[in-house]
Computed example of a mutant assay.
Amino acid sequence: MKKIFSLLIVMITVFGASKVFAQSAKTESFKVYGNCNMCKKRIEKAVAVDGITKADWNVNSKVMTVSYDPAKISNDAIQQKIAAAGHDTEKSKAADSIYTKLPGCCQYDRKGSAAAPAHDHHN
């Protein structure tokens, strides 16, 4: 009987700890600018860091969905990592020097950026 009680205590503790961890994870979505699957790979790779458990950028909607541990990384830091890879987000703009090094198909219309001309992908 004592063993069953001990086992029950351990199971409750493990279940409780996993529930606390699951509650600490946060999922958010935000806009990230890009054009193609090369962008998708670059954007998702930029956030393959400790604290982020899932990252998916949708090429068509331009929406990034991330699941992360806010104790390890913030939404702002995630968006800064994406900008450091050359892609503008809702909160962070990529440095022109990084953006202009992106392949031509990955350079999107930055609307108002004098350093980055719009590219016509129909040519």
Rank of each mutant, 00 (worst) to 15 (best):
D76R: 12
T65R: 11
S92R: 07
N60P: 06
N60Q: 15
N37M: 07
E28G: 01
S97F: 06
D56H: 13
K41C: 01
A25P: 00
A22Y: 05
G34F: 03
S92Q: 13
P70D: 09
V49F: 07
I98D: 02
F21K: 09
D56P: 03
Q79H: 11
V66Q: 11
D88V: 10
P70I: 07
K31L: 09
D76C: 02
A85P: 08
A85N: 01
N60M: 12
T53I: 05
Q79E: 15
N75V: 12
G51L: 10
I78H: 08
Q23S: 09
L102I: 03
I52D: 10
D50Y: 03
R42N: 15
D69H: 08
F30N: 10
N75T: 04
K41N: 08
A22T: 02
K26Y: 02
M64R: 08
S61H: 10
A46K: 00
D56N: 15
G34V: 04
G104N: 03
Y33E: 04
N37G: 14
D96L: 05
A84S: 14
S24L: 04
Y99T: 14
D69K: 07
I78M: 00
D50W: 02
S97G: 05
D96H: 05
S67W: 00
A46E: 11
V59Y: 09
S67I: 02
K41S: 12
G34H: 06
A71T: 15
V49E: 09
K62E: 10
L102K: 06
I82E: 08
M38I: 08
H87N: 12
V32A: 00
A94V: 07
D96W: 04
E44P: 08
H87Q: 03
D50I: 04
Y33L: 13
A85K: 10
K54P: 04
T27M: 02
I78F: 05
T100F: 01
A46Y: 06
